[in-house]
Design a protein around this nucleic acid. Structure first.
Lengths: 236, 236
DNA sequence: CGATGACTTGAACGCCATCAATCGCTGTGG
DNA sequence: CCACAGCGATTGATGGCGTTCAAGTCATCG
């Protein structure tokens, strides 16, 4: 169903609206469904379309030759992905759960961009937003401990997922780990430690993907940390 | 000495030329010198200018509250930095050595962008190039060991610095470490290990910043690695 | 019901951070 | 000229965080 793409976060909805407008204008757009786990496009494949999530969740990643994976971003309803400003995708995109997307031919965007300067400006704005996210991610990967990375992840998701207070994670522990540059065991351990500390609580979900944040401040002060290794805040 | 930094690599010169052209057109531009170690602009300061390096080297970084630093990029002659597509800089920029820059008022760029669609397109191209670099950096920080990060750094610099074969690093070990998310001791140890292994050789420089790469292939196969921790290639 | 997959938890190892000592070069002042 | 402090870099010793290996639980599915 194409019903409810309403609840996009505030900032994103402006960009989303831009693409939404285009879908009513002279760029060709359509919809498509991808079932859980399927690939939407592959790294280095021709970038013929750009995508906006109507419902579901998507992860984008790069692979190393040894099979190691770095997830670049998680995309949620309202988010746009696949915009590479080039002829080829730089990431692989996969549906984390059953996902419905609106897709727009890149060629038609390019065409629109030729006549409409505001269109190029819009692409620039989206690319810049993308850049900001990646820059913050670098700070996370370069400077922070496992505990801080997981805390930052929870806070990021807390701000992005719709429902107030409860986080319903669509992705596995391994996905989170590959996003944060950790192992899934470490992610699991940090979640448990936060729960013991009283910062969060798991709902009655067999896979433990429903999380209630009880003490966001407790997590926040682990984000921009005060000390590096020594004198850690002692979570456990 | 910082004598010989003349020729910019091939790919960069196209973008550089774009800004160079603009400096002859109706955007106002000027030159300025910053001496070694001085700040060019600070994070969160108004982004009034964008910069192109004429001679010298610049590092851009973010700081955490505890003083920990993440260097986002090193900029060399021909490179453009400070282009944030927003009202405020997202990084601090400092001159690594005595540096001469061409600077262009952002406002005049914005003005030119209003009349010239190709201008916005050019900004988009530069921002996308920036994004690509940061995405690759994420892969480096998220997936790789210390040895692989240092190897990747050397290969990156080998491709960017002018003289064939010899790398004249303008930055300190600490700068490199903060770029790679390591400590300067670890960077130093990796350099030594590579030298012992015969992958590189230090020229007669007291600070050991002149490096000759003897076996680029040896370094390359450490880049996209085959194995994670176990069965390491045994550098030492 | 056996098989599989996601998750948790425990134990041991190792890479890298930390602490510390040393060296060489530079600049300053006696 | 030399003494001395300061900075950058190297190298060694030690310890801890996070990985690795492993076992076990629980839910889903053919």
């Amino acid at each position: 169903m194409v019903t409810n793409l309403s609840t996009a976060p505030n900032k994103r909805s402006r960009l989303a609206g831009k693409l939404g407008d285009l879908s009513h204008a002279k760029v060709s757009s359509g919809e498509f469904k991808y079932s859980k786990g399927t690939e939407i496009f592959g790294e280095a494949e021709p970038a013929d379309y750009i995508y906006q999530i109507i419902e579901g969740a998507v992860r984008t990643h790069k692979l190393l030759s040894d099979g190691r994976r770095q997830i670049g971003a998680f995309h949620l309803p309202g988010d746009i992905f696949g915009l590479d400003n080039g002829d080829f995708h730089r990431f692989t995109a996969e549906a984390i759960v059953d996902t419905t997307v609106r897709l727009v031919k890149r060629q038609s965007l390019e065409r629109a961009a030729k006549t409409d300067p505001a269109m190029v400006r819009s692409l620039l704005t989206m690319t810049t937003a993308n850049l900001r996210h990646v820059e913050n991610h670098i700070l996370l990967l370069g400077c922070n401990t496992a505990r801080e990375r997981v805390a930052a992840f929870l806070l990021e998701m807390n701000g992005r997922l719709t429902s107030p207070g409860v986080i319903a994670l669509p992705m596995s522990r391994r996905d989170i780990a590959d996003y944060l540059g950790l192992t899934f065991e470490t992610v699991s351990r940090m979640f448990s430690a936060f729960a013991r500390k009283g910062y969060l609580r798991f709902l009655d979900d067999p896979r433990q993907r429903q999380i209630v944040v009880l003490n966001a401040a407790g997590l926040t002060q682990l984000g921009p940390r005060k000390q590096r290794w020594t004198q850690r805040p002692s979570v456990d």
